[in-house]
Amino acid sequence: MNSLTLGNYYPGNSLLHKIDPRIKLSLSLVFMIGIFFLDKPLSLGVYALGILVLILISRIDALTILKQVRPVIFFSIFAFIINIFSVPGDVLARLGPLQITREGLITGFLMMSRLILLVIGSSLLMTLTTTSLLLADSIESLLSPLKVVKVPVHDIAMMISIALRFIPTLADEADKIMKAQSARGANYDTGKFFDRIKGMVTILIPLFVSAIKRAEDLAVAMESRCYRGDMERTKYKPLKLQTRDIVFLIVALLFMTGVLLIQFLL
């Protein structure tokens, strides 16, 4: 299945790609929380500048960045339009019973840019510049304090890596099953609604059965290689904090503090 692109990782070699994923994950949480306090043009503008710097550092092209916004574009336009008409203030224009106010225009625009900046920021820091395996590793690492309260962090991490490893395999299998069933005359593109659902089921059944079988085989294979969930697993490339990670973290935190100071003091 060649058309299958997994995740939206953008391969690259920039500084942002190399920063420790745990730092990026925690920072995107900080930025996400931070942006919710911003509702003035100046602080949002400075925040936008920061995001622009991140984009430049990451050397990701504008089109890819814009694609990240697609899922929220409908919603942000909706929020914009609703705000134009609903916020009271100086009336700029009238459309029948509706009126567009200056304040509405400003609030709508700020709302929209806040949402878009948020989406760009978090995808820049996380999915665009970090492979899904590294993200999973960093989730495990950040969750590891929960081991104290008996959360099976290790099991969760093992399951994430197995799932990520097998998504392409299972997708490939789904593709094969689809072709095999088409060759037998199954049909999921034409016919009545109910027939199409039936066609879908002819793919689902072999897919489920093979997943169950595969799980059994995999468990036996891991068992026979002495896999023990409770032992600390070693990694080929363990995550290690470097000086540049710390510097990046400090600069980013200072920036966020600055933006919040602008918001609340100016």
């Binding site: 399951m159 097998f166 199409r196």
Partner: peptide, 26 residues
């Protein structure tokens, strides 16, 4: 072994939920 098998089944079924996107729906 049974516990491990359940864990792996969980992983594979979650992966299945992810890939059902690629199956044509009407």
């Amino acid at each position: 072994n049974k516990r491990l098998q359940v864990l792996i089944e969980i992983a594979l079924f979650a992966a299945l939920a992810m890939i059902l996107d690629f199956i044509p729906t009407p």
